[in-house]
C-alpha cells in the first residue's frame, strides 16, 4: 500500500491508500474521488482520466506512444505535467504522490 493525494477540481485534498500495481485512475474511481471519469475503464482509449502530476514526476516512466496520442484529446488544458491516470501504476517509490484533477474531463 502507498498513499496518493488527489486534489479534486473544487480544491479538496483527498488521501487514498492504494495497492501496488493499481493505477491512479483505479485509486480515484474506487474511492469516489471527484473529477475522474475514466470512460474506457483503463484501456487508454478515452482521455477522461487526465491529471496533473504535482510531485514525484521525475520518478514516473515517460508516457508511451498511445498515452501521448490520447493526451492530444484531453478536454482541459494540457500542461507539461499532464498524464493519464490509468497509465500510472502505484508502487512504493510513488508513496506520497500528489495529483491534481482538472475542472473537466469531457
Amino acid at each position: 500500500m502507498s498513499k496518493v493525494t488527489f486534489i479534486e477540481p473544487a480544491g479538496n485534498a483527498v488521501d487514498v491508500d492504494v495497492a501496488d500495481g493499481w493505477s491512479l485512475m483505479q485509486a480515484a474511481t474506487s474511492n469516489g474521488v471527484d473529477g475522474m471519469e475514466a470512460e474506457c475503464s483503463g484501456s487508454c482509449a478515452c482521455a477522461t482520466c487526465h491529471c496533473y502530476v504535482e510531485s514525484h514526476e521525475e520518478l514516473l516512466p515517460a508516457p508511451a506512444e498511445n498515452e501521448l496520442a490520447m493526451l492530444d484529446n484531453v478536454a482541459a488544458e494540457r500542461r507539461s505535467n499532464s498524464r493519464l491516470a490509468c497509465q500510472i501504476k502505484m508502487s512504493d517509490a510513488l508513496d506520497g504522490i500528489v495529483v491534481r484533477l482538472p475542472a473537466t474531463q469531457v
Binding site: T29, G32, C40, S41, S43
Partner: peptide, 18 residues
C-alpha cells in the same frame, strides 16, 4: 458507480464501451 466492472477493465476493457 464509477469503477464498475461492467465493461471489464485494464488493457482488455471493452473496446466498444463508447
Amino acid at each position: 458507480p464509477k469503477g464498475h466492472l461492467g465493461f471489464g477493465g485494464g488493457v482488455h476493457a471493452c473496446l466498444g464501451s463508447a
